[in-house]
């Protein structure tokens, strides 16, 4: 037991350090490659006359932050979602936040003429809040949210919002042009201002998710056993759903719907750290952050002078990795 605990702690430390390291490295890459020493002086000897310094501070730094926290949030939300529903294919998007955010974005473009990607954050947040609120209302019972009802309500609300979204997109070609970049999911257009707008949401969501992980842990043994162990099932589910919605809603508003992390990262992590929800949640957070920052950085490097959006890149990297892990490691499939 003890050696197992040590191994897990080492693994978590390794993940965390890798994510930070990848984050620092990402500051060096882009259309204009920058030496690490130059990146250093951008922080410690900032000179507004040097273009590299401006790029590092105003573009690459917020982008790295967004990828780390956004990727982490999606990984964490995915882990909670899979435990909550006891379904290995559950993805946080099933709660309707993606559909809601998409509709918020499209309405903002079409009705209010907003075109800059960075100003789409608030409409997306509003849209996902409306969708998640409806899903919670429909999926709740007197004794707390019921996982199956939640997913059904989420599917219905998503379909409804998607139908509205497409109706608007058919009416307005201009909306479609902006929307198709948003819907790929990317961290490229995030500015410090958006991060400042969103940090309170993360400051609430992350501790809430930590509480949820503790409350959810006995539920991995099934509802009946959890209740026999004195767990408060309704409370655990409510806190988890709130944490998931807040984490995903905020991230989708910031970076668009990036579905892959929430679905895949918890699977991969389960094979490394086992079934303890508390460890799984932390590992999924760190690994999500790592995958997002690596995908975002590679997306800048693969095609010279062009970028592949992080959402697409993540599937390109994560897909083969997942297949390899499923085929070689045990304990992946729940």
């Amino acid at each position: 037991m003890r050696s197992l605990t040590v191994r897990r702690v080492l693994f978590l430390v390794f993940l965390g350090l890798s994510a930070v390291f990848a984050g620092v490295l990402s500051l060096c890459f882009g259309v204009r490659p920058t030496q690490l020493s130059e990146v250093q002086s951008a922080f410690f000897a900032f000179d507004p006359g040097i273009a590299e310094h401006i790029v590092v501070q105003n573009l690459r730094l917020p982008r790295a932050f967004a990828a780390l926290i956004g990727g982490g949030a999606l990984g964490l939300a995915g882990a909670l979602m899979q435990v909550l529903t006891r379904n290995p294919l559950a993805d946080p998007g099933l709660l309707g936040v993606n559909g809601g955010a998409a509709m918020g974005v499209v309405i903002a473009i079409w009705a209010f003429g907003i075109t800059a990607q960075s100003t789409l954050v608030l409409p997306a947040l509003a849209g996902s809040a409306v969708a998640a609120g409806l899903v919670l209302l429909l999926g709740g019972t007197g004794r707390g949210p019921d996982p199956t009802r939640l997913i059904l309500a989420g599917a219905a609300i998503s379909a409804l919002f998607l139908a509205f979204t497409w109706s608007i997109l058919i009416l307005s070609r201009e909306s479609l042009d902006i929307y198709r970049f948003w819907v790929l999911g990317a961290f490229s257009d995030i500015r410090m201002d958006s991060l400042w707008d969103l940090w309170p949401a993360y400051a609430i969501a992350l501790p809430l998710a930590a509480v949820a992980a503790f409350l959810l842990d006995p539920l991995t043994l099934g509802e009946e056993t959890a209740r026999a162990l004195g767990a408060r099932v309704g409370l655990a589910r409510l806190v988890s759903v709130l944490a998931i919605v807040l984490l995903c809603g905020t991230t989708v508003s910031m970076a668009g719907p990036i579905a892959f992390i929430g679905l895949i990262v918890p699977h991969i992590m389960r094979s490394f750290v086992g079934a303890d929800v508390r460890v799984l949640a932390l590992a999924s957070f760190l690994a999500g952050a790592l995958l997002a920052i690596v995908a975002d950085t590679f997306g800048r490097l693969i095609l010279p002078g062009q970028e592949i959006e992080a959402g697409a890149m993540m599937a390109l990297i994560g897909g083969p990795v997942l297949v390899a892990i499923v085929r070689t490691r045990r304990g992946v499939v729940a």
């Binding site: 991995t220 043994l221 056993t225 304990g331």
Partner: peptide, 13 residues
């Protein structure tokens, strides 16, 4: 209380 049908998640030791 130990229910009749119990399931543990994959990867649990």
């Amino acid at each position: 209380l130990l229910p009749q049908t119990v399931t543990a998640p994959a990867g649990m030791r």
